[in-house]
Design a protein around this nucleic acid. Sequence first.
DNA 1: ATCGAATTGGAGGACTAATCTCCGCTTGTC
DNA 2: GACAAGCGGAGATTAGTCCTCCAATTCGAT
Lengths: 222, 222
Amino acid sequence: MTQRTSTPRPLRRDAELNRQRIMAAAREVFAQRGLDATLDDIAHHAGLGVGTVYRRFPNKTALVDALFEETFHQLLDLVEEAGRAADAWAGLRGLIVQLCEMQVQDRGLREVMLSSAEGRSKSDRMRDMFKPTIDGLVERAKTEGPLRSDFDPHDFPMVLLMVTSAAEYGQYGGPDVWRRYLTMFFDGLCERRDKPTPLPAPAMCDDEIEQAMQNWPPTRRS
Amino acid sequence: MTQRTSTPRPLRRDAELNRQRIMAAAREVFAQRGLDATLDDIAHHAGLGVGTVYRRFPNKTALVDALFEETFHQLLDLVEEAGRAADAWAGLRGLIVQLCEMQVQDRGLREVMLSSAEGRSKSDRMRDMFKPTIDGLVERAKTEGPLRSDFDPHDFPMVLLMVTSAAEYGQYGGPDVWRRYLTMFFDGLCERRDKPTPLPAPAMCDDEIEQAMQNWPPTRRS
DNA sequence: ATCGAATTGGAGGACTAATCTCCGCTTGTC
DNA sequence: GACAAGCGGAGATTAGTCCTCCAATTCGAT
């Protein structure tokens, strides 16, 4: 018996500090540029050499996993809180808005949530934990609220996908353009409706659209 | 004076045939795999060597331009026909559906339309020609039809973007999943509404979502 | 203070992949 | 049958990423 697996020996003080620097840098860089950012980029951003990063994390996937571990808990809290909302329709909408906000602010998070290529087991487990809560919320929003009866809980991720796509493409129109389309979509999710919900953001102008077209597809480089 | 620009000497018969083979192959390959398909792929698909392709088209962009030239005319016809619709709201919806259909069937076309990186001047001109017709259609759909009054013609491309994103992500649920979300969105575009429009396609099931996640982001390789 | 173990930096090896060129050989045309 | 036009596809070129390696440095227990 050499060493218990649960006691992998503490890091030297400076090493621990650098570990945290790496995590912080990774969080920033992945959020801005997506998961295709290189570990070289992250290391440089942290003011360290690549070698240091590779000593701490065997490869990029390990870093991504470590990084989004805590975000997942945050996500789960959000979902469960929404599940307890008195007004299920408001809770459901609020949840979608919050999830979109997080994904818009963090391109890496969006990529992790849309793909199971990275952090495979993570996002599987995540979905399993979300499922019952979302199913319940959807059900309640139909009986107690105005949610259209043919909405399926499986539509949930698709709504996020569409809105975050709009957010990515529409970013040059400002950070809130996506809310315009989410509002329209919510109006489409009502069983019936007397008047449109006021739109929270203006449409993009010609120049902004032009700019969006010029920067699409989103660069996966520094 | 050597040669008039308009008479660039006819191609030898076999060369002309190969040119057409290249165009046909390019159409297929770009439609299936998007504009990131390599010219090597296309050449091979056409049963020719790469050199042959490069003799005919100085580079990939030239091929893309040549290829989508005619598609643009087709697009313009569609738009103008929609503009003449008696029922403006039906015309607008029909136009969106048709444009989505085309982009869903042709990944390359979607990329050309979303980006001005390729075929820059093309898509600029295209937008200019679309604009008046779409503006008119939107205006009419508001006064004569149920289109919500805060809809802006600039929202038009964003609708296409969102729905085609859903189509790409949702393709494992079948070729029509996107129509489900477009229907919901149209319901959101109505000023008021008594009941939801029946959805034309079921939601994806868990397995299909799983599959979508595994193949995202869409591969840009053979 | 000392010394050995832990840690660091970042050049560079090993890949992968895409675009486009070159030129010996083939084919069409007159 | 001559010869210009065309062809194929190996490979030069460029780019970009992941990850390794090891001399030099730093930490901290003694």
